Amino acid sequence: MAWRPHKQLIEGFLDNTTAGKVTGWLRFAGLPEKVTLDLEGHFHRDIRGAALKLLPPPPLDDGDSYMEGFNVLQTGSAGDITAGLEPADYVRYPYIEWYSATNGRVVIELNPEDIEVIGTPRSHAEEQPVDREQQDQNMERFLSGVCENLATSNSK
């Protein structure tokens, strides 16, 4: 199962201006501290080399318990991170995914009006799409970890 904290997201900033790195921070309802991201990887070609400001509508008051256990330092690998702009290599809406060393797969889906691209992305013509084989390997590692955790918890 993936974390899907899009309803808890208050605001955030993600930066891919350094090649091969995605850094930034996110604030969530239910967490007193900002979550810091330090990920290996890239944004998709539509926004690679730029930054994203995330300003979704205020979270619904669903209680604060969903974010319980979510680590405030997220390290790991960037998954599919796109604003859904052309060239749309994945989906046609803002989609933020990463594979956390501590929390597994995290997915945030937003509406186009909830994000702002800051800076100028690199030229689409000079960039390769995100490697689907690498993304498949990210998912495979995540699912293997889920299976291992299930096997360990069932053997107790």
Rank of each mutant, 00 (worst) to 15 (best):
G12Q: 03
P58D: 02
I108Q: 05
V72M: 06
P57C: 02
A101W: 05
Y66F: 15
P56C: 00
V106I: 14
L60N: 08
A88T: 13
C147T: 13
E126V: 05
P94T: 07
F13I: 03
F13T: 01
G79I: 01
S100D: 09
G12I: 01
F13C: 06
A50F: 11
H6I: 02
R132Q: 14
D64Y: 03
V72S: 04
H42W: 14
A19C: 09
Y90S: 15
P32C: 07
H124T: 12
E40A: 13
L14Y: 03
L85V: 07
V107K: 04
L39V: 00
W98G: 06
P58R: 07
A50E: 12
E133C: 07
L39F: 00
N138H: 15
S77R: 15
R122N: 12
L73P: 03
R92P: 01
E140V: 09
P56Y: 00
V146L: 05
N16D: 06
W3S: 07
F43W: 07
D64S: 11
Y90I: 11
S77P: 04
D61S: 14
P56A: 01
I47P: 03
M67N: 11
E113C: 08
N111I: 09
Y93P: 10
D131H: 06
Q134A: 08
A78E: 11
M67R: 10
N111P: 02
R122H: 14
P56S: 01
V130H: 07
Y66E: 04
Q137R: 15
F43L: 12
E109G: 06
P129K: 07
R105W: 00
G49T: 06
D64T: 14
M139E: 15
N111T: 13
A88K: 05
I115Q: 00
I10E: 15
Q134C: 08
L60T: 09
V146C: 04
A83N: 09
M139N: 13
K21H: 12
E133V: 12
R105I: 01
P58T: 05
S100T: 00
G69H: 04
T23Q: 06
Q74L: 01
I96W: 02
G145L: 06
G49Y: 00
D62T: 10
N149G: 13
A50Y: 12
T36G: 05
T36N: 08
D131Y: 07
G79N: 01
L55M: 13
S153C: 08
